[in-house]
Nucleic acid binder design. Structure first.
Length: 401
DNA sequence: GAATGCAGCTCCAGTATGTT
DNA sequence: AACATACTGGAGCTGCATTC
């Protein structure tokens, strides 16, 4: 229903009555807006002349329409941005709730054990006041599976190792295998839920981090599985064998040899088993394990100045995030063998803590960089936009020169 | 020539009102 | 209620005339 009057063929407001433009007129205006959202006064008059369907609209109304159209677009963009922020905060909240739940269970377990030990201590004190007693104290800590005997590099053997690697990695990534201790100075935030390190009681030293990235899991896996930070000091990385697995994953057997350019940098030489798998819940796992020394690999003669070490099951657990994007858990678990270096340097290698933390921090930085590139490309990736938008961007660029 | 005042125009944020 | 259209007031910019 249109309440308007036509004076001299022009559509004009009838004493404040409401005017509704026809769908054809709106379509024409939208086209013009996409071409140029801020036309000058001269350009608007030109549009009215060139576009017969707009010829009965007053220039002032055209001006108002463009103003309102810009306002609408701004509001829509802001609403979209707020929705994205909301989705991200919801995902973060979920993660924190999970972490909180896990910590509460841990507290309950420790309280229970504390009560048990207290009672046990009292009993032994009373019962063995003047007799010696060896009480076996078991900590509440979960231990990793013991080292397995060497196996051959046949497909069956590799599959078996890969499956164990996967199980061990998942138990670390989901926080059930070891007790993680928050690193000082690492506060939870939008970029990092937290980065933590194992203190004692497990083989080697590990670090763990968690973050959000606005990419689908498969894309994240493609980017992260080549982890350049792990290969920075490699002399060679060769794919020796690729094996399909029952659940659609792939095992790649890599050989890499690291060496120490300086005496301070730990170096290793080992085979590296890489395992990529799709889980039932839709998450992806990219994890790795070295097969150094104790297991069959290429026969490397002992080389002086090399530090032997083992990469325990490490990698990424990439879960799809509600509302888009992915939640990524990073685990690095290393065990350098200090006996293989001269005694004077041994303190430098006694713990892999620094290396594990450094590696995990590098992975976290990579995640942040990916997240930044994704958000940046949404703004600047004009190369894939339609020609009209590219033209608009060029016009705007010229306008600011 | 520089400084000043004024009119005219546009933009934006906010608001009123009609329509769906 | 959500959306579309029109209006209002404040701010900024530009061009022009006037004054010093």
């Amino acid at each position: 229903m249109m309440a308007m009057s036509c004076k001299d063929g022009k559509m004009a407001m009838d004493n404040g009555k409401y005017v509704r433009y026809t769908p054809e007129q709106v379509e024409a205006l939208e086209r013009l807006y996409h071409d140029c959202p801020k036309p000058s006064s001269i350009r608007r008059q030109q549009l009215i002349r060139e576009c017969p369907i707009l010829s009965n609209i007053e220039p002032k109304q055209i001006k108002v329409w463009f103003q309102n159209r810009r306002c609408r677009e701004k509001q829509r963009k802001e609403a979209s941005r707020l929705q994205a922020v909301n989705r991200k905060l919801t995902a973060m909240n979920k993660l924190l709730m999970e972490e909180n739940d896990r910590l509460q269970k841990q507290v309950s377990q420790l309280v229970y054990e504390n009560g048990y030990f207290r009672q046990h201590t009292q009993n032994t004190t009373l019962a063995t006041k003047d007799t010696s007693c060896e009480s076996v104290v078991t900590s509440g800590q979960h231990h990793l599976t013991p080292q397995h005997p060497p196996r051959d590099a046949s497909p069956a053997g590799l599959l078996s190792i890969a499956e164990e690697t996967l199980a061990e990695f998942l138990s670390k990534a989901t926080g059930t295998a070891v007790e993680w201790v928050q690193m000082p100075g690492m506060k939870p935030g939008p970029d990092s839920i937290g980065i933590v390190a194992i203190s004692h009681g497990c083989t080697g030293v590990a670090a763990r981090a968690c973050g959000l990235v606005g990419l689908e899991p498969t894309r994240v896996a493609e980017i992260l599985k080549d982890r350049p930070s792990w290969f920075r000091d490699c002399r060679a990385v060769d794919v020796l064998n690729v094996l399909p697995t029952a659940n659609g994953g792939t095992i790649e057997l890599l050989y890499m040899q690291l060496y120490a350019p300086t005496t301070l940098a730990p170096a290793r030489d080992f085979w590296l088993l890489r395992y990529t798998s799709v889980m039932e819940d839709g998450s992806l796992v990219v994890c790795e394990r070295s097969l150094s020394n104790t297991q069959n690999g290429p026969s490397m003669p002992p080389v002086q100045n090399f530090v032997r070490g083992e990469m325990l099951p490490s990698g990424y657990l990439i879960r799809p995030c509600e509302g888009g994007g992915s939640i990524i858990h990073i685990v690095d678990h290393l065990n350098l063998e200090a006996w293989s270096v001269p005694e004077v340097l041994r303190p430098l290698y006694e713990s892999s803590t620094v290396l594990a933390q450094k590696t995990t921090m590098a992975a976290l930085r990579q995640l942040r960089q990916i997240a930044q590139e994704v958000s940046h490309s949404n703004v600047t990736n004009w190369g894939r936009r339609p020609a009209a938008l590219r033209a608009l961007s060029q016009r705007l660029s010229r306008g600011f020169q």
